[in-house]
Design a binder for these strands. Structure first.
Length: 196
DNA sequence: AAGATAGTCAACCGCACACGC
DNA sequence: TGCGTGTGCGGTTGACTATCT
């Protein structure tokens, strides 16, 4: 379905413009999140649903922190990575305001090096615990029946559905008025704390 | 000052899971 | 129960910036 929708349009790729951000924010604030694949069009965006979702989750969502990680956050990441491996979304759920993508990037850019360095400093009897990093990577993370994996907490769970939300002065009405959908997989949001 | 290299981060891709029919 | 579709996750890529030579 959505696939056909996306296929029939020439979809934009690459970096998001401020205008696109505004459109997505305005649309979600007004109508909530009901179907990523279908939302892009009425929102006036020539983007795939995935792209919209990613942009929202990683950048536009209220409460996202950007910028430097604190020592505490870094320590939390290191600790959790030691325990959980590359379960970035699970790690992110323990760090309010941080996204899995940001944590993943930070790990690869900063912490992994440091971590490796530290481990190299350990005596040889100390195993590197590759299971959490390398060996789990491809094979097990999705099959792993640990609670951390089975729960799959939704990032958007914290939002409640109030599609009656409206923009104070919505300058970008969608071309199609969407009728309220019953909650889709618990996503959507009142966006009460939304400050755009 | 200019080019080369390294580092960072936003975004894309492919896959697997959850869910509805 | 099986299938189709939407969503979410982790890995990877590519553009941009900073630093070095």
């Amino acid at each position: 379905m959505a696939k056909s929708v996306e296929k029939t349009r020439a979809l934009r790729k690459g970096a998001w413009s401020p205008e696109e951000d505004k459109k997505l924010i305005a649309y979600i604030k007004r109508y909530g999140i009901w179907n990523w694949a279908e939302m892009a069009k009425p929102a006036g965006l020539q983007r795939s649903g995935k792209s919209c979702r990613l942009r929202w989750v990683n950048y536009l969502r209220p409460g996202i922190k950007h910028g430097n990680f604190t020592k505490e956050e870094e320590q939390t990441i290191i600790d959790l990575h030691e325990k959980l491996g590359n379960r970035w979304s699970t790690i992110a759920s323990r760090l309010p305001g941080r996204t899995d993508n940001e944590i993943k990037n930070h790990w690869h850019a900063h912490l992994r090096k440091r971590f490796k360095y530290d481990l190299n400093a350990l005596p040889e009897s100390e195993p590197l615990e590759p299971s959490s990093d390398e060996t789990n990577q491809n094979s097990s993370s999705r099959i792993d029946p640990t609670p951390a994996n089975t729960s799959r907490p939704s990032i958007l769970e914290s939002y409640s559905v109030t599609s009656t939300d409206s923009l104070p002065s919505s300058s970008s009405n969608p071309p199609v008025e969407i009728e309220e959908k019953p909650n889709i997989k618990g996503s959507i949001g009142s966006l009460d704390n939304f400050k755009a």
